[in-house]
Structures are given as C-alpha cells and as structure tokens.
C-alpha cells in the first residue's frame, strides 16, 4: 500500500505537470479576454488526433510532430478568436463567449466523430511503452519526457510574460483593458495572439495526454474541460501560478484517492474538493477579489 501510494503521488505530480500546461493556456485566455474557453478540452483532443495522424500516417515522431501541431493549433486558436469571439459586444459578452466556445466545441467534436469514430485511440512510440526504474518503481519514459516538456513550456511562457515587451502588453491588458488601450496597446491584437498561444499549448498537452492517458475519443474533451475548469477555478481565475499548483494538487489527490478508496469515486472527490474550496475561499487559491466582482 505504501509503495502504491508513493507511486500514485509521483505519477500524480508528473501527470499534473501536463494538466498544468493545458490549464495555463485556459487561465491565460481568461486573464486577458475575460472569457472561459469551453472548447479548450476538445482542442486538446483535436491536437492529440493531429499527433496521431502525423505519427501513424506520416511516421513523424511525436515530439518532432510538435513543430507542426503547435503552429497549427496556434492558427486554429487565432481563427476561432477572430471569427467567433472578437465580434461579441455588449452587456452579455462574457456569457455569450462562453456559449460560443461551447458551440465551437460541439462542432469540433462532431467533426472528430465523423472522421475518427467513437473508438478509443492512443498514441504510440518506443518511449511510451519503455520504462525506467526509479526508487524501486517503474516510471514510463513518456511521463518523464512529458513532465519535462510541460516544465519547459511553462518556463517559456513565464519568460514571454515577464521578460518581453509583448508579455508586458499581455499583463497590462490583463490588469486593465481600457488603460492598456489608452497607452497605445492594440488590445484586439493582444487578445487574438493570447487566444492563439492559449490554444497552441494544447498541442503539447494533447500529445502527452494522448500518450499517457488511458486512450481518448472525441468525447474525452468533456471530461478534460471539466477537470481543467475545476483546476483553474481552484487556483484562482487568471492566476498562472495558481493553475500550476492546483493542477498538480488535484491530479495527485485523484491518484491518491484511486489507491486509498476506489477509482470510481476519485473523480467525485476531485469535484468535491472544488466545491469545498469555494465554500471556504470563493476566489480560489491565488485569485484576486476582482474575479468575483460583477
């Protein structure tokens, strides 16, 4: 039991890194645009399918394939923002954008079903099945590589946000849209690019998820988005550090409950933790009070 538990914790931390990557994109989009992109989950699945097509039909390595899928997802993100999010105006903008992204998710899901059917797929490579022995238990290479990739990308995001001019304009837009516009930031451009970046990270997230998870089909997007939403709310909407901590915490918690209690209840505990958290601290772990204001 003890060994299973420590294994679950290590697995949870490693898998949590991947969830963190997907959640960071979501929370970044929220911070800048003040909308929640419900399509994020199904976009992860779309990215996983892209990796699948590249590796099976074109025999491109999963990690090398990222050089194709990341730009592709970026373009898709920018296009979704341009076509469906940008035109929204007025009082109901936030709720409208939520519904619009939900509709986008439905369409993508339907298209994926039509192309790939409802069978479960997973990504394969030599390092997916291979494992290395660490501290007495086996860790699959893909978990380690995926975690490393997640750490790398999150660091790159942090660097972009805090050390570049563009990152400064993103953060300015996050703080105050109107003021940012007043000092000459092209807010619409920043919003579009941020949406693109937020979606582009799903390419990496989707690839690792497709290789590590128990397989995916077009419907997996719902499961993913509800987890990701729980994570970013728990971490505090718009907080990147919060998303990281919450992702690792939640996924580890789920793994531990798996071992200690039963796999069928671990997901309930997952959402239960979110609900409990909000009773105690409605703005999330790292959230600002403003996240609650009307």
């Amino acid at each position: 039991m003890g060994r299973q538990l420590s294994e679950a914790i290590v697995d949870g931390i490693l898998a949590g890194g991947v969830y963190a990557l997907m959640a960071v994109g979501l929370t970044l989009i929220f911070g800048v645009l003040d909308i929640i992109n419900i399509a994020q989950g199904v976009l992860v699945v779309l990215a996983a399918y892209l990796s699948y097509v590249l590796s099976v039909h074109l025999h491109i390595d999963l990690f090398l394939g990222l050089f194709i899928t990341v730009p592709a997802m970026f373009v898709i993100g920018v296009a979704i923002h341009w076509a469906f999010i940008r035109p929204l105006r007025g009082r109901e903008r936030t709720s409208m954008s939520l519904l619009a992204s939900y509709a986008v998710a439905l369409i993508i899901e339907g298209v994926l079903y039509t192309i790939f059917g409802s069978n479960y797929t997973s990504l394969h490579a030599s390092y997916v099945t291979g494992a290395v022995k660490v501290f007495g238990f086996y860790l699959s290479y893909i978990y380690i590589l995926g975690f490393a990739l997640a750490v790398l990308l999150v660091l790159a995001l942090y660097y972009t946000l805090y050390r570049t001019q563009f990152g400064r304009s993103i953060r300015a837009t996050m703080q105050d849209r109107t003021a940012a516009r007043l000092i000459g930031i092209d807010v619409n451009r920043v919003a579009g690019l941020t949406f693109g970046i937020g979606v582009a990270v799903t390419a990496a997230g989707g690839m690792v998820f497709g290789a590590t998870g128990g397989g995916f089909n077009p419907n997996t997007g719902y499961d993913l988005i509800s987890r990701l939403l729980a994570i970013i709310i728990l971490g505090g909407l718009g907080s990147i550090a919060g998303a990281l901590v919450a992702a690792v915490f939640m996924i580890t918690l789920e793994g531990v409950v798996d071992v200690l209690w039963s796999p069928s209840w671990s997901v309930v505990v997952f959402y239960g933790a979110l609900v409990l958290m909000l009773v105690v601290r409605p703005q999330g772990l790292f959230g600002r009070r403003a996240a609650r204001a009307q």
Partner: peptide, 14 residues
C-alpha cells in the same frame, strides 16, 4: 456564493 464564470463552472462541476 460566486458569480459569473465561477458560477457557471460550479454548476458544470456539480
């Protein structure tokens, strides 16, 4: 107890 997006997400979670 929460508003806007957070409320929507809580309803989805429940």
């Amino acid at each position: 107890r929460v508003r806007r997006h957070t409320f929507v997400v809580i309803t989805i979670a429940v």
